[in-house]
Nucleic acid binder design. Structure first.
Length: 423
RNA sequence: GGAGAGAUGGCUGAGCGGUUGAAAGCGGCGGUCUUGAAAACCGUUGAAGGGGGCGACUCCUUCCCAGGGUUCGAAUCCCUGUCUCUCCGCCA
């Protein structure tokens, strides 16, 4: 949620322009109508409450030696009016709240305007796409050849868009996870193991609800959602907290399974494990002081890139354009890894700075000696990295003509010395 | 799953249905004292929303787990839910 301040007359022009870059047209008339309506009703409610409190207090003074039935009746009358006003206030607040919850975060000024992912700007390219002197296979073929990736049994037990890893590929997957976590811990992140089922409040806190309900798996009976990313449980750890300044920044790394319905992705990436309902991800989350937000995004990106550098995989970094940036984010970098089978770069990490957008929803604040009131924190997160896609990238980039896979140098210790994967 | 206990401010912990937004202690902040620090002493110290004033500020409403109810009036009484703890059962 945005700071309501940005809708005040002095700022609203800028706000309208900013939101329009995303394609969001702010209904200014409706907004001011909703605000005025709520304010008016609220003042009326408070006057009535004040009346009631005054008279009740008067009763307490007089009740011992005076007849107070007139006063009592008066309060009863007030309460009757209060009841209807209260429901009106509630309706007005809800309407305004719903309106606010639907407005995306303001874009950072450095974000460029664009219509789709085709307009994202390549910031840098690291390494070069490998040149193969043979026709590279894709991970599906390689995985079957190595008896390491099993779709048919996964489909049998869970349906499409699920996958089973087995044998050496399962081990390689586990090696990747451990390598990523260890690397991040060495750079100052605290390792967490968190629940993958969360309450609705948590999903609201980080912005997956109310707008994106179709994207998640939800356990109706228990009113719990399967997390689409570790961002949800980890970031929500600071929900309703007032932190002290010296607790910041908080830097967490969490490895979890993630679950997505992929509702809008029918027919997209149907082959292989690029887009599945259940996948694994190592996630980085930062809770920081507002003035540090921008720098922390850059270092978060560096930390995510570091994994690809160490794995010696070719990648590039793109800055997302105005219409490709997520609803809650004010600025996002994607890291894309080169996949030989597709001869293109595919997203493997997304690093975002949310400003106070999530913090306001979560009421996540910190106390600073510079301010009288608690201040909202900034939240950031980024994949470090998506494990399944990393596995795909390793398999495809390190494949040999005979279909075997060279184990990347940094993973060899995690493979207990194994240097090559053969059938 | 069965039985019981509990949920109060940053923390610990009081709280007869009527100036209790809430005692006390701890912590935090400011000050006195000190060469400095500690100790001691004094003062101060919750949040959200709204109104008014250029402003230091001031006024009002709400908040004692959540949601209902009783009452002129609820932290306090009643119901429901959530969570925590203890015991029993079951189980990884």
């Amino acid at each position: 949620m945005n700071d309501p301040q940005i809708f005040h007359p002095q700022q609203i022009e800028d706000t309208v322009i900013n939101l329009a870059k995303r394609g969001y047209i702010l209904d200014r008339n409706l907004l001011s109508e909703l605000i005025e309506r709520k304010k008016k009703l609220q003042i009326e409610e408070e006057i009535l409450q004040n009346n009631r409190n005054q008279i009740s207090k008067e009763i307490s003074f007089k009740i011992k030696d005076t007849d107070v039935s007139d006063l009592k009746n008066h309060v009863i009358q007030i309460n009757q009016r209060l009841e209807s006003i209260k429901s009106e206030v509630e309706a007005a607040s809800k309407a305004l709240e719903a309106f606010y919850l639907d407005i995306p975060n303001l874009l950072h000024h450095s974000v460029h305007v664009g219509e789709s992912d085709a307009d994202n700007a390549v910031i840098k390219t690291v390494g070069h796409p490998k040149v193969f002197n043979f026709e590279p296979k894709d991970h599906v073929e390689l995985g079957q050849h190595l008896n390491g990736i099993n779709f048919s049994d996964a489909v049998k037990i869970s349906g499409s868009r699920f996958v089973i890893l087995q044998g050496q590929i399962a081990k390689l997957n586990r090696a990747l996870i451990s390598f990523m976590i260890d690397t991040h811990v060495n750079r100052g992140y605290t390792e967490l193991n968190v629940p993958v089922l969360v309450k609705k409040e948590a999903m609201y806190g980080t912005g997956q609800l109310p707008k994106f309900a179709d994207d998640q798996f939800m356990l109706e009976r228990d009113q719990l959602s399967l997390i689409p990313t570790a961002e949800v449980p980890v970031t929500n750890m600071v929900r309703d907290e007032i932190l002290s300044e010296d607790e910041l920044p908080k830097k967490y790394v969490a490895y979890t399974s993630c679950f997505r319905r992929e509702a809008g992705a029918y027919g997209k990436d149907t082959r292989g494990m690029i887009r599945v309902h259940q996948f694994e991800k190592v996630e980085l989350v930062k809770i920081v002081k507002p003035e540090m937000g921008e720098d922390e995004l850059e270092s978060l990106l560096t930390d995510a890139e570091n994994i690809l550098r160490l794995l010696e995989l070719p990648y590039r970094v793109v800055s997302l354009c105005s219409k490709d940036i997520g609803f809650c984010s004010q600025k996002t970098y994607d890291i894309e890894v080169f996949l030989p089978s597709q001869n293109t770069y595919r997203e493997i990490s997304s690093c975002s700075h949310f400003g106070t957008f999530q913090a306001r929803r979560m009421q996540a604040r910190y106390r600073s000696p510079h301010y009288k009131k608690p201040q909202l924190v900034h939240t950031l997160n980024g994949s470090g990295l998506a494990v399944g896609r990393s596995l795909v990238a390793v398999i495809e980039n390190y494949q040999q003509p005979d279909g075997s896979i060279i184990v990347p140098e940094v993973l060899i210790p995690y493979m207990h010395g194994q240097k090559i994967i053969t059938p």
